[in-house]
Amino acid sequence: MPDGIVVDVEAGHIYWTNMGVPNLNDGSIERADIDGKNRTTIVAKGDTHTPKQIIADKSAGKLYWCDREGMRVMRCNLDGSQLETLVESGHGESDSRDPKRWCVGLTIDAKRGQIYWTQKGPDKAGLGRIFRANLDIPVGQTAASRTDIEVFFDGLPEPIDLELDAENRVLYWTDRGDAPRGNTVNRASIDNKPAEPQILIRHLMEGIGIALNVATDRMYVTDLGGSIYSARLDGSDKENVRYAQGNLAGIAYAEIPKEK
């Protein structure tokens, strides 16, 4: 069950997460060339439980992802080495049955050295949250005991994947909860956080993936209803690029040069 995807155009690689069977500890991360060749597993089955959205910090040579039933935010080097747990929101089988602890989507603010992630909460419960913390665990603390974690937003329907417009300092995310606040795309300033996020797009069929192309003022969104949408960053000019594609999850934007 592949879920998250990220593209490294310069290195010619795509990375994706495999959720595995959610009640088993058998998730993995794979890499392949952009043409699909040289497929290899870089994070072995069971080294991550149920990996979801994945992102790359190419300047630091790191991959970051959320591990849902594993209740973790994790990272490793681009080759899969130096596997680390940055956040642990629960431990053990009992905790793993609590969706309030499930880590799903994430992004990083490289400028401030911070990470944002979602914990979706139960279906249609309005208990979703977005958290923020430093990229690195404070000295002397652990992934489970770190004290620098803050709640960025609380009481959201079901926040899923995150994207950051680093230039304009704006956080975007999908939400698959109930209308009117759910099944939406939302955004909020990360430096001047509003009391409530701005809803940009409504009427998704359980929104999941989101990718931004800030230079052309476009966003791309997927939902479990099988659609890919494109819209301006303010939510206007929405169009359905593809529909009835099955259950769609992660999406990435990349500009790949044509072969000469």
Rank of each mutant, 00 (worst) to 15 (best):
L156M: 07
P159N: 07
P180Q: 04
L164W: 06
R146M: 12
Y172S: 00
L164V: 09
R146C: 08
E150A: 14
D165Y: 02
L171Y: 02
D161I: 01
V151C: 01
G155Q: 11
T147V: 10
R146L: 08
R181P: 11
R181V: 10
T174A: 04
V151R: 03
A166P: 14
D178K: 15
E150T: 14
P157A: 03
Y172T: 05
D161Q: 12
W173K: 09
P159H: 08
P157C: 00
F153S: 02
F153H: 09
D178I: 15
R176D: 15
R169F: 11
G177V: 12
P159C: 05
P159M: 01
I149T: 11
E158V: 13
Y172M: 00
L164Q: 00
L162F: 08
G177D: 03
L171R: 00
D154P: 01
D161M: 13
P180L: 02
L164D: 05
D154Y: 03
G155V: 11
P157L: 05
L162D: 03
N168C: 10
T174D: 01
T147M: 10
G182D: 06
G182I: 08
R146I: 06
P180Y: 04
V170N: 12
D165R: 11
F152G: 02
P180S: 00
V151K: 00
D148F: 04
D154W: 02
L164E: 10
L156I: 09
L171V: 05
D161T: 07
N168A: 08
V170E: 10
R146H: 11
R169L: 06
L164C: 09
G182H: 02
L162C: 12
L162G: 07
I149H: 05
G182N: 01
V170W: 10
I149V: 06
D175Y: 06
A179L: 13
G155D: 11
F153T: 01
E163S: 15
L156V: 07
Y172I: 06
V170S: 06
I160L: 14
L171K: 07
D175E: 11
D148R: 03
Y172R: 00
W173L: 06
L162Y: 03
Y172G: 00
F153N: 10
F153V: 00
D154G: 12
L164T: 01
F153Y: 14
P157E: 05
Y172P: 09
F152C: 00
F152L: 10
N168D: 11
V151S: 09
N168Q: 12
A166E: 15
L164N: 10
N168P: 08
D165T: 06
N168V: 08
A166F: 13
F152I: 05
D178C: 12
N168R: 14
R181Y: 13
A179Y: 12
P180N: 07
F152N: 01
T147K: 13
T147H: 11
F153R: 00
P159L: 08
P180I: 06
P180W: 03
